[in-house]
Write a protein that binds this DNA or RNA. Structure first.
Length: 287
DNA sequence: CCGTTAACCTGAGAGC
DNA sequence: TGCTCTCAGGTTAACG
């Protein structure tokens, strides 16, 4: 579900609430996430204080005392909910693309603090929670991943070097976390529209100006999405408290048969399948 | 090494 | 109302 901007929003919310708080109790209702939640998960976290909350690409990291790192990935459908304690209500305070109501099913992991608890919900269970116990191991774990658009040295030279010998189409390149990290299906579509690049074009075919636009608009789109609280799709209709509003800015994503936002164009956005992912673009503006 | 596809899961919505 | 089918914000093992 969440791409870089959505995970960043979670990070920012958590920084306001659980930073420097102590974990009093952990309960795991279902260990069968994408990777099995380890046996000693609860024991390792209990009585630890949270030092900091970090993000890298689509990963959220809770940095604990004693060089303990809890790495969280939300998969396709993971969400985090903050619920005040000692209240019977089911209001959550941490609803990004979700309603303010805690879902009834699929609440797999609950982390208790003195005045509230955070609940991890994930219907499809593609997400995971992993504990890393040394700083060294933590750093090498994250260094595996490619640079993300917001990195200072994510620039023309970096992207050029990464893609110029690739026979892979640019849409799949943007989704490949080993080439560029943090971008998912929504933002890949949007970035390619702004960059005026046909998603089927191969990495090796991109010209100087196209790579430049790709770098520029990757940064712009991701930054703006963060400023707008991320994107809330699918369930945002029935939610009165969703935080994200970047879905209102979508130019092509989920816009099949709608007019191209470029007013001079007047053609319709088309939808095609690229490697089993829906891809939306204007075949006139994106060459 | 590289690129593509299928598989992992549940639920919502469309069409009949 | 209910059935079947397709699709969904991600990742990766397995294959050629």
């Amino acid at each position: 579900m969440p791409e870089l901007p959505e995970v960043e929003i979670v990070k920012q919310s958590l920084n306001k609430t659980i930073k420097s708080k102590k974990i009093l109790k952990v309960s795991v209702k279902n260990r069968d996430l994408r990777f099995k939640v380890e046996k000693n998960f609860e024991l390792k976290l209990i009585n630890k204080k949270i030092k900091n909350i970090l993000r890298k690409a689509k990963y959220l990291i809770l940095e604990m005392e004693e060089n303990l790192f809890l790495v969280i990935h939300f998969g396709m459908s993971g969400t985090m909910h903050l619920v005040k304690k000692n209240k019977r209500n089911i209001n959550t305070n941490l609803s990004f693309y979700h309603s303010k109501t805690l879902p009834l099913k699929h609440n797999h992991i609950i982390i208790h603090f003195s005045k509230f608890k955070i609940i991890y919900n994930d219907p499809r269970r593609f997400g995971f929670f992993k504990i890393i116990e040394t700083k060294k191991e933590f750093e090498s774990y994250l260094n595996k991943y490619a640079k993300e658009p917001l990195d200072k040295d994510f620039n023309y030279e970096y992207v050029k070097k990464k893609i110029s010998n690739r026979k892979k189409n640019i849409k799949n390149i943007l989704l490949d976390q080993n080439i560029i990290s943090g971008i998912g299906n929504i933002y890949a579509n949007e970035i390619l529209f702004y960059s005026k690049i046909n998603p089927k074009k191969l990495g090796s075919e991109l010209k100087f100006i196209e790579i430049n636009r790709l770098v520029k608009f990757s940064k712009k789109v991701i930054k703006k999405a963060i400023l707008m609280g991320g994107s809330s799709i699918r369930d945002f209709k029935n939610s009165n408290g969703e935080r994200g509003s970047f879905q209102k800015e979508f130019k092509v994503y989920d816009k099949k048969d709608q007019l191209c936002p470029n007013l001079r164009c007047k053609k319709k956005i088309i939808k095609v399948n690229i490697s089993n992912r829906s891809t939306f673009y204007c075949s006139y503006c994106q060459k």
